[in-house]
Design a protein around this nucleic acid. Structure first.
Lengths: 334, 334
DNA sequence: GGTCTGATCTGCAACGATGTATGCCAACAG
DNA sequence: CTGTTGGCATACATCGTTGCAGATCAGACC
């Protein structure tokens, strides 16, 4: 059906292997021969069959990316950056949506999906480190997102603690004293939620402000979660003068709910988030947040994974580079 | 390295082909034999090599999806739905970002990328129908997004004209008479922009309201485009009492800019969009928009493409199903 | 008992590329 | 004139799977 190397070889009057050599830029080919082959390729419109190449070479030049759902803006933006970083290095990205379900995450880690990729970028949400190590095969794996942290696994870290502290300090500097936290459970110390909550607490302590567990409300990290959580908090009679959403989605949901309830932002209540998704810039009022270095995370993760893939034999120590962050002060918490 | 069918065959004490037969649910296998094979598979942790399978069978069970950029919420949400629809039918989706560049779009249509997929879902932005037909190979292709319309190509249609008219009619019913349009050029008649502009005009005509080209402002279909466009309009002294952004992103950008400039929405100026991205619901004020049936579009497009793939010989007429739409009235234009 | 039928299983070739080993020839040294 | 070197091209095996064409065997049937 499709044009193969054999067809090209026949037309160019050379052997199949010579065509292969031309395509792979083998050094010792007479320019005339090379030209004949290239002409034949042009004439026939030959395209290399990547499937066959993969089978023979054992490399697919594809990276798997497992995340909850692309409809979540932070993941979509991260995926976009990851694809660009991978593309620049000659790799493609195959996205797998786990929907936050353990079954799907496990399937993505060990299923046939793996045979299509040379390595995996994984944003775990449902599995813990032990389960990941169990389920993962021998193929390279780099974690993102740090709901899981473990010294045995490669991952790209966000400075959750310091960044959350920076947000909190900024709110405190604005005179806020009762800062609600959305998206964590009092007592969490691990995962993005725990680390960010710890950063918040540390900043409070630094400023000599007492920590009030009543201000910490757990919820889904989504817009409706944030809206619902701040509603619950206000309905319960707890008063606050600032809200720190542990990601932008829930900060924006909370922002929306506050405005619906007629609260003035930032006059009565300041709102801050975490992630700096594109939408934060264009919310009304625009959202103060922290940019966790998304492009850098994507770049580092792809680089680390590809290094693992291409130097498979060498097994240097586990790597956990940290991305830098930046506070983005906007209208919602000036 | 990895476990192959051969290993399984050896352990189970059957031929390689029998293992293959078990995996492919061949009818005539003694239950005992089947069990032995399954046990061996379990014991060795065998996973079929999809690359080899693809090479042999000529099918990759992957669909290509070419879009501008996943960081654009509408595309991300559509991609998420498409992946789910494809997954439910046993296909995976390989996303390719064109960045809206003709070169990339062309490369995605004809490059090696195609050899990895059984068919392509394509949201063209830079190429026209002629170029697409030229560049596309013989593999199945379904278009989305209708910047291109052509009777020779399969595509899933949005009811741009009727939906835009519905939005306009709604704004008119709210007493608005000077409705600015963002994202089109006066005189556009094709593509999403043209079709939506025509719908707008038709609704005006139906209501006996004069069309004023000065109210039509072209810009990028992004948040900053919308912000900048409404700014330009207001700065030029043109007054309006409503803004219709031809997609949600620019409507939200405009909304933001209006609020920054102290205009009251919806009291002074109503704002409406098109797409019903998740964010529209949580904007402040929440955005009135039209939902173009995203899930339905994804479903239909995947279904149509897979039908083309699996009934390749049969070549029924070009299909262009239309998705249904729904007006979502919210605070920005009650 | 021989033939036929259908269930069950097997061997071989092939998908389209690449790695390895090798052949051939011209140029050059001895 | 022979032997060696290096540039250039080729043949063959191979990656892991599936399609095709049998092979084998038990029981049914006459």
């Amino acid at each position: 059906m499709a044009v193969t190397m054999n067809d090209v070889a026949r037309v160019a009057g050379v052997s199949l292997k010579t065509v292969s050599n031309v395509i792979n830029n083998y050094e010792f080919i007479r320019p005339a021969t090379k030209q004949r082959v290239l002409d034949a390729i042009d004439e026939l419109g030959y395209e290399a069959n990547l499937t066959a190449r993969s089978l023979r070479s054992g490399k697919t030049s594809m990276l798997g990316l497992v995340l909850a759902d692309l409809s979540i803006p932070y993941y979509a933006e991260l995926a976009s950056d990851i694809m660009k970083a991978a593309w620049a290095r000659g790799y493609r990205v195959l996205v797998e949506q786990s929907g936050n379900e353990p079954e799907h995450e496990k399937a993505a880690l060990q299923g046939q999906f793996r045979t299509l990729t040379d390595g995996l970028l994984f944003i775990p949400l449902a599995l813990d480190a032990e389960q990941i190590i169990d389920a993962a095969g021998k193929k390279p794996l780099v974690l993102l997102g740090e709901f899981v942290q473990d010294p045995r696994l490669d991952m790209v870290l966000i400075q959750n603690h310091r960044a959350a502290a920076a947000v909190t300090t900024h709110l405190l500097a604005g005179g806020r004293r009762r800062i609600a936290v959305l998206g964590a459970h009092d007592g969490d110390t691990t995962g993005s939620n725990g680390l960010r909550l710890e950063g918040y607490k540390a900043a409070l302590a630094d400023a000599g402000v007492a920590y009030d567990p009543a201000l910490v409300v757990d919820c889904d990290w989504r817009r409706d979660g944030g809206a619902e959580a701040i509603g619950r908090l206000l309905d319960s009679g707890v008063e606050c003068d600032a809200v720190f959403g542990l990601n932008d989605a829930l900060a924006l949901g909370a922002l929306h709910e506050l405005l619906v309830r007629g609260r003035k932002v930032p006059e009565e209540i300041a709102v801050a988030g975490f992630d700096d998704i594109d939408e934060a810039r264009f919310a009304s009022p625009s959202l103060t947040t922290v940019a966790p270095g998304r492009a850098e995370i994507a770049e580092r993760a792809v680089e680390l994974l590809i290094n693992r893939i291409e130097n498979k034999d060498a097994a240097p120590a586990v790597q956990q580079p940290e991305a830098s962050f930046e506070l983005r002060v906007r209208q919602s918490a000036p």
